[in-house]
Amino acid sequence: MKKIIENRYDFIVLFDVKDGNPNGDPDADNMPRIDQETGHGLVTDVCLKRKVRNYVEAIKEDKAGYRIYIKDTAPLAQLDQEACKALDITDIKGLKKKTPQADEKIRDFMCSNFFDIRTFGAVMTTFVQGALNCGQVRGPVQLGFARSIDPIVPQEISIARTAITKVTDFYTKRATIGRKFIVPYALYKVEGYVSANLARKTTGFSEEDLALLWQAILRMFELDRSAARGNMATRELIVFRHESELGNAPAYQLFERVQVKKKVADEPARSYQDYEVTVDEADLPEGVTCTRMS
């Protein structure tokens, strides 16, 4: 039996992009997401979780216990029905009255089979419609929005498409002009949290799952290359480990120990080497240790 994590973790991920669009905004012609007031670039938690899911799916290849629930290759209702079939459930709506332990059984089945539910939680509409509490699972791992260290200046690049689709257009049309947005360079920081309390009470997130999560964060861009995203890489993962399940210090106090500054303030950064990353590990709160991974 896998060992459920017993320690709380707070972590920071530093990743960068060069000549690419890290997270396009569909409401703004796929322009890189930006904080309109400060000019800092943004990358959503949903985007980063997608990359973790894709990495786990690629290396585990639907291995038992490591399947991915949120994906575009299977309807969620179809995956929900797997729990019903395995637990011999035919009537969702009347289940709660007939079987008081139904919530727990369905939740445990879904968490044990799908890595991303066990990690991030999920809303399972089939069970929500049946008024079952297990339809909403809160995961122990949570991420915030990533924000660039400095303001970004997205650039619009014109591109030409020389291929002609229709035979009738071949002799009359020439290249079609299109466009793409890029960020010349930006370093982003995102804060994350791992709750041992939720892992124990709800999803069963294990030490093995945690090791896989760190691996996925460090390598999530390596299996997710595309021309649109340019060159992206995780540069560093800074993990604060608490001795206790509920934590030994507030997360914000630990995050404030991580400082990222540009070496030359008045010059635009164009590489990770243009920044200096420091972590104040002196006099850490009792029961907290820091590990830096890259």
Rank of each mutant, 00 (worst) to 15 (best):
S244A: 13
K263H: 04
K85E: 15
E276D: 15
G130Q: 06
V56Q: 04
V13P: 00
A269Y: 02
E61M: 15
T119R: 01
I12F: 01
Y193V: 13
G39P: 03
C84G: 13
E267C: 01
D72T: 09
D45K: 00
T176V: 10
N23E: 08
R67K: 12
D209T: 10
A102T: 13
A249Y: 04
L76C: 08
R147F: 12
K49R: 07
Q155G: 00
P250T: 05
F181I: 04
T202E: 13
F15Y: 14
A251S: 13
L132V: 06
S206L: 08
D10N: 13
E6N: 14
S158L: 15
G24Y: 05
D283A: 11
I117C: 08
R174H: 14
V52P: 03
V128R: 14
P22H: 06
N133I: 06
A269E: 06
T119D: 04
T168V: 10
F109G: 11
I70L: 11
R67D: 11
I34H: 02
G230V: 02
F127Y: 12
E286F: 07
Y252E: 14
G20W: 01
V56S: 09
G204Y: 00
A265T: 12
E243I: 12
T291W: 03
R235L: 13
T44Y: 04
C134P: 05
K262H: 08
T73S: 14
A175D: 09
A186T: 05
D91F: 12
A265V: 07
Q78H: 14
Y55V: 03
A282M: 10
E104K: 15
F240V: 08
I164P: 02
G20D: 02
C290Q: 06
D103F: 08
V258E: 00
V43M: 02
L95S: 10
Q215S: 14
K49M: 00
T90S: 12
R241F: 00
L48R: 04
F170L: 13
T278I: 06
T278Y: 04
E208Y: 05
L95P: 00
K49C: 01
V258R: 01
E104R: 15
G287M: 05
F120H: 01
A199V: 08
E222V: 09
C290T: 11
D72K: 09
K189P: 02
A77N: 10
Y69C: 01
L132D: 02
E281S: 14
G204Q: 11
M124P: 01
R225F: 06
Q101V: 08
M110C: 10
G135N: 12
S206D: 13
F145L: 02
R292E: 08
R138C: 07
D169C: 03
E256N: 09
T126H: 08
M124E: 06
A249D: 03
R107V: 04
K201H: 11
D266V: 07
Q101S: 14
N30C: 01
Q129F: 11
V56D: 02
N197Q: 09
Q81C: 13
I117L: 08
I59A: 10
K2E: 15
I238T: 07
D25P: 05
E104F: 07
G121R: 05
D25K: 00
I34G: 02
G192C: 10
T119L: 05
R219N: 15
A163P: 04
V183M: 03
V279P: 06
I12C: 14
V17N: 00
K201P: 00
D45T: 01
Q273G: 08
E57T: 04
Q101C: 13
D108Q: 10
Q215L: 10
V13T: 05
P100T: 09
P75M: 11
